[in-house]
Simulated assay, not measured.
Amino acid sequence: MLRIVKTNSRTHKPLKPISPRSKHISLKINDLSIGYKSKTVCNGINFHLSVGELSAIVGINGIGKSTLLRTLGNFQSKLSGNIQIDGKETNNYDPLELASKISVVLTEPIASKNMTVQELVALGRQPYTNWIGNLSPTDISKINTSLQLLELDDLQNRKCYELSDGQLQRAMIARALAQDTDIILLDEPTTHLDLYHKIQILKLLKSIAHETQKTILFTSHEIEMAIQLCDKILILDGTQNPFDAPCELIKNRAFESLFPSDAVTFDPETGSFRIQK
């Protein structure tokens, strides 16, 4: 268990935004095929993510959104293709080095909900602590800053089982943020949340990406919200898998092929889907 030294989190300064720079590509995917052993779920995936951008992976159920995220996070092996972080193939990173580059929030439940919020967020510092788990002043500062950014200061001593779904989701994101990686991957971060909290989480992620120059990628069924809030979107369709800014995807009619036209149509004027009655 990580040892946490009690401090007043409000005395710590927030993360300083990185000064503007040219769009550096932090994650690059070339001709990627994903799946399980001999079963291919999706192939021909090509896209790149730049620093300071919020991006989403959208598509129908079962197309491979979560499989792609798990593959990018090195939780399962790719079938073929290349995944590069800062120009270096992920296979060439050792596990500890990769953990300092990329953090992942999956949909699996946490190991123990008996932890406090502060203890959960502190787990994000494990790649940097010694085997005893002592937290340095830097570790504590990162933890407290993450608690602040996710507005969890008043909940940090609350047990995780006492939290609402939205509060627990914020705590999980804070843990990933405390890991202080350049890239953050999130699988369905708005699942089970009401409309207000879905918007709150996505706007918060966009703010973090832009202000701290993190590269944030998440999977979602909230396509209309992704269109309004994301800088880039990957439409996983199993064939073309188009990737671009939402306005360009709309211009190229990429969203119109997502669902059967006799059931749902996409309105490019409003960026929304309409049910065919």
Results as ranks from 00 to 15, higher is better:
residue 1 M to A: 06
residue 3 R to H: 14
residue 8 N to M: 01
residue 18 I to R: 15
residue 27 L to I: 02
residue 30 N to E: 14
residue 36 Y to P: 04
residue 39 K to M: 06
residue 41 V to H: 12
residue 44 G to F: 11
residue 52 G to S: 04
residue 55 S to Q: 02
residue 58 V to H: 01
residue 63 I to K: 00
residue 63 I to H: 01
residue 67 T to V: 09
residue 69 L to P: 03
residue 71 T to A: 08
residue 71 T to D: 03
residue 73 G to T: 10
residue 74 N to R: 13
residue 85 I to N: 12
residue 86 D to T: 02
residue 90 T to H: 06
residue 98 L to V: 13
residue 100 S to N: 06
residue 113 K to V: 11
residue 113 K to S: 13
residue 115 M to T: 09
residue 118 Q to R: 13
residue 127 P to M: 11
residue 135 L to C: 03
residue 145 T to R: 15
residue 149 L to V: 12
residue 152 L to K: 01
residue 153 D to Y: 07
residue 158 R to S: 10
residue 160 C to G: 01
residue 164 S to M: 04
residue 167 Q to G: 09
residue 169 Q to H: 10
residue 172 M to F: 08
residue 173 I to Q: 02
residue 178 A to M: 13
residue 182 D to A: 11
residue 185 L to I: 14
residue 188 E to N: 11
residue 188 E to V: 02
residue 190 T to Y: 01
residue 198 K to Y: 03
residue 201 I to M: 13
residue 203 K to G: 02
residue 204 L to S: 01
residue 204 L to K: 05
residue 205 L to V: 09
residue 217 L to Y: 02
residue 220 S to K: 08
residue 221 H to D: 01
residue 224 E to Q: 13
residue 226 A to R: 06
residue 227 I to C: 05
residue 234 L to E: 01
residue 237 D to M: 02
residue 244 D to E: 14
residue 259 F to Q: 04
residue 259 F to R: 01
residue 263 A to H: 10
residue 265 T to G: 06
residue 269 E to V: 13
residue 272 S to G: 08
residue 272 S to D: 05
